[in-house]
Design a protein around this nucleic acid. Structure first.
Lengths: 333, 333
DNA sequence: CTTTATTCTGTAAGCGCTTACAAATTGATT
DNA sequence: AATCAATTTGTAAGCGCTTACAGAATAAAG
């Protein structure tokens, strides 16, 4: 069942059938409806490979993420896929894990599959593809590259980011203004957004003429138990804090566990703020106040931007989405 | 840059280059290494579209799931993608949501993309594609269909399922044997696995000559709050229970919230058992005892089976994976 | 040094589609 | 009725690859 069968049955040439297939306007209304009817009757589906060969594209977008089972990324993937399909594009998914080598090979895989664009979901990408980003910058010349929560200033590379700096600045500011003084900052990685977040933390302090204490800024694996244990270690070594700002909800859950273990009252003895407002922040008791990073909006914007790029429109290299602070039960300001 | 360039540069015909590309043994070692060297030198990547046209396949598997942001499915997708890529296949992802219409159109989309097989992740599929499954059964004649946690007895359709019946039978049995008598069973849907689970619950009772009380078997939206509120309604209307078995961790989290709200001690006043042993079950205090459904193993088996199908080997229509009960803090038997 | 079997390589015909270009049809204008 | 422009259609040449088949080269055997 191919274009020949349709053309024969409809009494036209394959060129005409192809034109109908591609919405070419140079087809009389009469033949168009006729051909469409035949296609329907025969249950004809154009062969995507042949189509791809001719057109050089298969309307497929590559999505790369480190780990699709991370609640935040899982959410992003869902929304990206929905938006892409809504625009007639398919999603080729690649989960890279965290090894640089794997990231590279996934990227090349997608390129070899001739995807029309690549979306890098998650901020841990940019700085890991390679040191000086030469690799990504080169790729950006070949096809559009969309960064979700990452930024790289180069032609063909477009970013949609959340206002992480502002979100943390605000949240930590509220903690400080409500009288907290020793605020621990736990983060998972020094990614693009990670750097912005920590800067928000620092500036919230300095803008209030408060000192930045390096011992209160700590990296931690994205793991409930790791966060809890790190805090216990810190506490047991004499360090004190009455507030915790985190770069991810999972760390905040660990903080709640820490507080429970120590018999501390939340938020009276210790305030805790999560990040991403994922389902995790709703599971604990008390529920964790968290920053809603608007994943859905981020994804919609990313895909919208991509479509504009395809249409040849001029689009901003970077779009910033405003985050929301969601007050739940681990803060009381 | 195409196969011609390579052949010219290597001083051989395109047929020979193609043979090298496809690992055809009818190439002398000398020419093979030479061609490979040239490919490498030129950075040649075969055009997948042309390849697909010639071979009729692009080594791509379609993965369908209702919602990739569900923790369980997100995990499944991750492992499926990893396994598939490890076997040289790409993953085309489609998130269908729950509407039947959407499921159908996703399925047809994947078919039209000429994927080599379709994996349906999540048990809510089989019974929703259509009433009598005629649709799926028909598709199974065209290409392999793999069901993860679903079952349908038809040629070309292969299932990998978790022993849900046994898992629930065991867990509820332990609750009963530890003296609990009024065990609430909350489930999200009457999917294939859903039916098996509830049967496990029932048989655990009847095998102990205990009555099945219909008012203790309740459906509930897969939502923390919904579960909590349902339980409150039941409790407030006078119903009493000292144990809760759920078909999903999210419901169990809701149960923990209910217990907290009522000031009940866990597990002394009420035992709670989750399902899937997802990260949610580790977030609460106390942490929720849960059934580990071995997603990774399930996915590995699914892909292994698929590869065997491709190789033409005879494979069982259904493979069962044993679940594990993970005792944490919401039970004490 | 033939002859024959074996291994290796090249030729050319697709795979199903797109599209430039030419040809045919239609309609408007004189 | 003849002319020309505009619209619609068909022809045929790719797109880059695979593979059946034929032909060349090599090796084994006489």
């Amino acid at each position: 069942m191919n274009i020949y069968d349709v053309s024969k049955r409809a009494g036209v040439s394959i060129a005409t059938v192809s034109r109908v297939l591609n919405g070419n306007p140079n087809v009389s209304e009469k033949t168009r409806t006729k051909v469409l009817a035949i296609m329907d009757e025969l249950g004809y589906t154009p062969n995507v490979f042949a189509r791809g060969l001719g057109l050089g594209t298969m309307k497929t977008i590559g999505i790369m993420c480190s780990d699709s089972s991370d609640p935040y990324l899982a959410n992003a993937i869902y929304h990206l896929e929905q938006q892409l399909r809504g625009n007639g594009y398919d999603s080729l998914l690649c989960c890279t894990g965290s090894s640089l080598e794997n990231k590279r090979s996934c990227f090349e895989l997608l390129l070899s599959k001739r995807v029309d664009a690549i979306i890098l979901a998650g901020s841990k990408f940019v700085e890991l593809i390679d040191k000086d980003n030469a690799y990504l910058i080169e790729a950006g010349k070949e096809l559009p590259i969309m960064l979700v929560n990452g930024f790289l200033d180069a032609p063909g590379i477009y970013s949609t980011v959340c206002n992480d700096y502002g979100a943390v600045y605000y949240a930590v500011g509220r903690l400080l203004d409500s009288g907290r003084r020793d605020i621990l900052y736990l983060y998972t990685s020094h990614s693009y957004s990670g750097l912005n977040k920590v800067q928000g933390y620092k500036n919230a302090l300095t803008d209030r003429s408060l000192p930045i204490r390096r011992e209160l800024i700590r990296q931690c694996a994205k793991d409930l138990t790791a966060a809890k244990e790190l805090m216990e270690d810190m506490w047991n070594s004499g360090l004190r804090f009455d507030g915790v700002m985190t770069s991810d909800d999972s760390l905040a859950v660990g903080a709640v566990k820490f507080a429970h273990a120590k018999g501390m009252a939340i938020p009276e003895d210790i305030s805790i703020i999560g990040y991403n407002n994922s389902i995790l922040s709703y599971c604990t008791n008390p529920e964790i106040s968290s920053v809603d990073t608007k994943v859905k909006e981020l994804c919609i914007t990313t895909v919208d931007t991509l479509m504009k790029v395809f249409d040849g429109g001029s689009v901003p290299a970077k779009t910033v989405i405003a985050a929301d602070f969601i007050q739940k039960q681990t803060t009381n300001f």
